[in-house]
């Protein structure tokens, strides 16, 4: 089961952008940047200003990844799917929405906020802006940084359902302390997405070959991968070789 990585995009507290323009990814904890449309999207997107922070962050990282893979522009919709992992999802938006419900017993409930209380909505925004018609869904894992969405994307490529997938994670951290097993806030804030392809297409480069073993263990260029940040780091090691 193999595929190639052709694009990387991310938003973090210290940087944002795509693989072509950087030599490493830094996903340190910290406040995320205030993302403006012109920073991430080439063409106007009327919904961008209305989006919640979670959606802007995820959409921006997907946008950078597609740009990196030379898949940013399109004139016909494409059967490309997106799968994203998250632990806290749009909980921050949930809180802000429900705080509009409480004061007047629902009279002032915000439809604009409610529309973004489903964590898959930013995948829909990406689908609209980039013309992506493949399956798009969110995977919620107990442990932040889980790589189930990458495993799933690889399986979809192998099944032949899609030839190109976008996968990664988006998390803004825990907005409220939760006294349970999922409540430890060790989440990396930000979003990191990869474009993976069965065979390199339009892209002028690859970051290497992904391989998944039967036990779902993932390797990039034969280096075992334990988490998303390690995957990005390994991409850049390979990319150095390509630049040389």
């Amino acid at each position: 089961m193999t595929a190639v990585i052709t694009g990387i995009g991310w938003v973090s507290s210290t940087s944002m952008g795509c693989g072509t323009d950087h030599d490493h990814v830094s996903m340190k904890k910290g406040p995320l940047p205030d993302i403006k449309r012109k920073m991430v999207l080439a063409k106007p997107a009327k919904a961008f200003g209305r989006m919640d922070r979670f959606s802007k962050t995820g959409l921006a990282a997907i946008s950078f990844a597609l740009k990196d893979a030379c898949l940013e522009t399109w004139d016909k919709k494409r059967d490309i799917g997106i799968i994203a992992s998250t632990t806290y999802g749009c909980l921050d938006t949930d809180i802000r929405y429900f705080d509009t419900v409480i004061p007047e017993q629902g009279l002032l409930a915000s439809p604009g906020l409610f529309a973004y209380t489903l964590s898959n909505c930013f995948l829909g925004e990406a689908a609209i802006y980039f013309g992506l018609t493949g399956a798009g869904y969110i995977i919620n894992e107990m442990l932040p940084g889980g790589m189930y969405s990458l495993q799933t994307a690889l399986r979809i490529l192998v099944s032949g359902e899609n030839d190109i997938m976008v996968c990664g994670f988006c998390d803004l951290g825990n907005p409220i302390p939760l006294d349970n097993e999922t409540g430890t806030d060790d989440t990396v804030s930000g979003a990191l997405f990869f474009v993976i392809e069965k065979i390199p297409g339009k892209s002028c480069k690859t970051y290497g070959t992904l391989r998944m073993e039967e036990n779902s263990r993932i390797f990039l260029n034969e280096t075992a991968i334990d988490n998303w940040c390690m995957l990005a780091d390994t991409c850049f090691k390979k990319n150095d070789a390509f630049k040389a």
Binding site: G81, A115, L123, G124, A127, I128, L132, T133, A135, G136
Partner: peptide
């Protein structure tokens, strides 16, 4: 099978694409 309309966030694509 699954597919996205790539048309609108809260409204269905009129043509059911």
């Amino acid at each position: 099978g699954a597919a996205n309309d790539a048309a609108h966030i809260t409204a269905p694509a009129r043509d059911g694409c």
